[in-house]
Amino acid sequence: MKKILISALVYFVMLVTAEAQQRPQYTQYVLNNYLTNPAVGGIESYADLRLGYRTQWAGLEGAPKSFYATVHTSLGNSNNSVGSGSNRPKETKSRYGFSKKSSYKKSRPHHGIGAVAQVDEAGLLKTSTFNASYAYHQPLNRYLTLASGIASGITQFRVNTQDAVIFDPSDPYLNSSFENATKVDLTIGFWLYSTDFYIGASGAQLLRNGNDFESAGTDRNPHMRQQPHFYATAGLRLQPSNAITVVPSVMVKATDSAKPAIDFNARMMYAQRIWAGASYRHQDAMAVMAGININHVFDVAYSYDMSTSELNKVSAGSHEVVLGIKLNNHRKVICPTWIW
């Protein structure tokens, strides 16, 4: 049923974007932190291509649907710190399952380049984004590496008024300046990592565009304003046995006009092949997820979200699928070395 008032819908969109996250929600960002932090680009020795699709709040008319494609690769990283097969240094575990610093060679400084394309649809609003990124990875010692990255591109907003029932043709939200708006984007990030842990911080949508809605503006001339988004994340790799790896992680997301959102995640992997995990978003949802590294080229993962808010009364949860493809993987790496 398309009984939607255009003014009511866009008012809702403006309200949500003013007081909450504007960017798409992904449960499996733990498999692809490059989505929120350009410093991750080129972290592995191969080219990492990932395709993701998410349908949120299944069964609810006009619910968000998101698709993304990311690809990034390293330049000058042919002799990365951790080898494979007979060239891989022997790992010595400490009491808590960490790898001792002396068991790894010093990594080489290298560059990373990549790109992100996303399409997000919610009701009559469609948002399309494309960003290209550059990163530089600088070893600090034999154990730690610090990466810094920058990404820039464009975001386009479209409102499909043809599928709406319009009762007031003079509604200011129907003017062409809102139906088709294009913004320039800027993201900056930092990523401190080793084989045992990572800590990342980034800021997205940092540019202010000239036609953004300002306090001096009027309700008769609305514009979609991009709010800065900030992300902080950390993860720890524990290895209680040779076959089992446990990875707890956390993500904090914040905007100027919303309370910080916190995600808690935990995953367990067996033999670097099969993994399962759970995620909790504070006052939002719980999720279960699982995946398999099929071989040195393909991996696939699935997650299901159960809303813990009032939305669970009208939706059947959220589904997300991610397909990973390792290109130019000469070392035949099955489980990623740095992004586990």
Score class of each variant (00 low, 15 high):
M251I: 15
D256N: 15
D263H: 12
P240K: 04
Y231W: 15
S194Y: 13
Q239I: 01
G203H: 11
V252P: 13
A278F: 14
D263I: 02
Q239C: 00
Y270N: 11
G210F: 01
L192W: 10
G235C: 10
G200A: 12
P240N: 08
P222N: 11
F197K: 07
M268E: 00
L186S: 06
N175I: 04
P248W: 03
N175Y: 10
G203D: 08
M224A: 02
G210N: 02
S176G: 03
F230L: 13
Q227G: 01
N209Y: 00
I274L: 15
T218M: 06
I199C: 10
V250N: 03
R225S: 07
T218I: 06
K259N: 10
A258L: 08
S202H: 06
L174E: 04
G203E: 07
A278D: 05
F230P: 04
T182I: 13
Y193C: 13
L236N: 06
Y280D: 01
D171G: 11
N242L: 14
D185N: 13
A254C: 04
D256P: 00
L206D: 06
M268D: 02
P240V: 08
A278G: 15
A261H: 06
N265L: 15
Y198T: 05
D185F: 04
G203L: 10
G235F: 07
D196H: 06
Y280L: 13
N221K: 11
P260G: 03
A276S: 10
I274G: 05
S279I: 02
D171W: 11
Y231L: 10
R220F: 10
G189Y: 12
T233S: 15
S202G: 09
A276Q: 06
N180P: 04
K183N: 05
D171I: 08
I199E: 12
A232V: 15
M251G: 03
N265R: 09
N265Y: 06
M268A: 14
S257G: 00
P172M: 11
A271C: 05
T245Q: 14
P222E: 04
Y280T: 05
K253I: 09
E214I: 04
A261R: 12
T255A: 07
E214L: 07
K259H: 09
A234C: 13
H223Q: 05
D256C: 00
A232R: 08
